[in-house]
């Protein structure tokens, strides 16, 4: 049995790769890192690039492109938490600003402070309608 380490590549939307590897090269933010089995525990951020996984008993390497994320290394386990979106401080900031502005724009024509009585009345009315329909359904059977 070859000396291998288990590697999981997962993103929030899907599981990308899971299996044994002899050697892994990841594009860490401070430079590429190569990881052999029994590496010391390590956490690092990774930048967009290719993750190279050398599978046992084959000369070839599996290439997975990731748009950044986090790499966690334990002696017997490597976990790559891949981002699904291209991330960057400026990009995130721009998205946040866009979201904020959209909210401000939408809030401009609001009348006053939160009216709880109105909110609750509206909801209980909707709920009563649903319950009435259900009751009606039961009685007709």
């Amino acid at each position: 049995m070859a000396n291998t380490v288990h590697i999981d590549v997962v993103s929030a939307e899907a599981s990308i790769f899971s299996g044994e590897a002899e050697f892994v090269v990841a594009p860490a933010s401070a430079g590429e890192v190569g990881i052999f089995p029994h590496h010391a525990p390590m956490v690092t951020t990774i930048k967009p690039g290719a993750l190279r996984i050398k599978l046992p008993d084959t000369a070839e390497e599996t290439l997975i492109f990731i748009s950044g994320g986090i790499l966690e290394v334990q002696p017997g386990l490597i976990t790559v938490l891949a981002d699904t979106a291209v991330r960057g401080h400026d990009l995130d900031e721009a998205k946040a600003i866009a979201a904020k502005e959209a909210a401000i724009e939408a809030m401009q024509n609001r009348t006053s402070d939160m009216d709880y009585a109105k909110a609750q009345a509206e909801l209980s009315e909707a709920l009563a309608q649903i319950q009435a329909i259900e009751r009606l359904r039961k009685t007709t059977h």
Partner: peptide, 22 residues
Amino acid sequence: VGANVKSHITGLGDVPHMENLI
């Protein structure tokens, strides 16, 4: 109802994408 809405996202469709939520 006049709540203080700081941010919002609508029209996500059937597939949630992290990109839209960030």
